[in-house]
């Protein structure tokens, strides 16, 4: 599965907050054009892993490469360059509530790339259409939209700059099953159209099965299983089995009391 230069490569990444170890040696490669989904319970460090790759958090040790280029410890200016390759769909949408919908979608084009507003607006409307939103919704503010629509706007913003790599942070959380499936379809469609590399984190198995080429399971700061999505049901790993079937009993014991 490893190609000569993977799009994203993590090697032995460690991250701790004080005494609490969150990532305890993560190794993962994502090939160009591939879609990898990382599954795992709440609080197992899925978001921390994404934030380390994005440079929002700095790992204590280990190497993170994007297109073969080391990104740990880049200066903020160099990082802005690397960021141009990325798009990200945040869990809560993270839309800028002081800006209109179209300004949100066009943000990366106007602020990041210095495009004129009129042209950026046209592209924004086009991207909104791609995620199934009418041009008229572009003039609303994010607070005026429903949760599902906010997710779609957020997706439109993530793909607006035609990024090479897109991260999806729990894209279906908080949506009804039908809207979740709509979002899953959109994610698959958008990644295919852009030819983008996708890395997602979720605990929604329906979503993981739909959008993943490969699935990795994160447990206690380590990736305990990585394999093709179609093999998830015969992983032979009891942790994975417990997780995908959502059983309370098994090797993973929930710490109800901290």
């Amino acid at each position: 599965m490893t190609t000569p230069t993977p799009k994203i490569r993590l090697a032995d990444v460690h991250k701790a907050f004080g005494p609490k170890v969150v990532l305890d040696g993560i190794d993962l490669s994502v090939a160009r054009g591939e879609s990898v989904v990382v599954i795992g319970g709440s609080g197992t460090g899925k978001s921390v892993m994404l934030k380390c790759i994005l440079g929002l958090l700095r790992p204590e040790s280990g190497s993170i490469q994007v297109d073969g280029e080391e990104v740990v410890g880049l200066s903020s200016r160099e990082r802005e360059q690397v960021m141009r390759k990325f798009g990200m769909l945040f869990q809560g949408g993270a839309l800028f509530d002081s800006l209109k919908v179209w300004e949100n979608v066009a943000f990366g084009l106007i602020q990041g790339q210095g495009m004129e507003r009129a042209r950026a607006r046209d592209i924004a409307i086009e991207k909104l259409a791609q995620v199934g939103l009418a041009a008229s919704s572009g003039d609303l503010f994010p607070a005026e939209l429903s949760g599902g629509m906010q997710k779609r706007v957020s997706l439109a913003r993530a793909i607006a700059t035609s990024p090479e790599i897109i991260f999806f942070d729990e894209p279906t959380t908080g949506l009804d099953p039908i809207m979740a499936d709509v979002i899953n379809d959109l994610i698959v469609k958008c990644c295919k159209e852009l030819g983008a590399t996708a890395l997602s984190i979720t605990h929604d198995m329906a979503s993981a099965r739909k959008i993943a080429d490969r699935i990795a399971m994160l447990y206690k700061g380590r990736l305990i299983w990585v394999g093709p999505a179609k093999d998830i049901d015969r992983s032979g790993n009891e942790f994975v089995d417990q997780f995908i079937h959502g059983r309370a009993q098994g090797p993973i014991s929930m710490e109800l009391r901290a």
Binding site: K51, G55, E80, F107, R157
Partner: peptide, 21 residues
């Protein structure tokens, strides 16, 4: 509020420095 709703992280991923913006 922008911090806790990840809007500041979103700025960074959109190639915009939150200090600057």
């Amino acid at each position: 509020t922008m911090r806790v709703t990840e809007q500041i992280d979103a700025l960074t991923t959109l190639s915009t420095n939150p200090f600057k913006y």
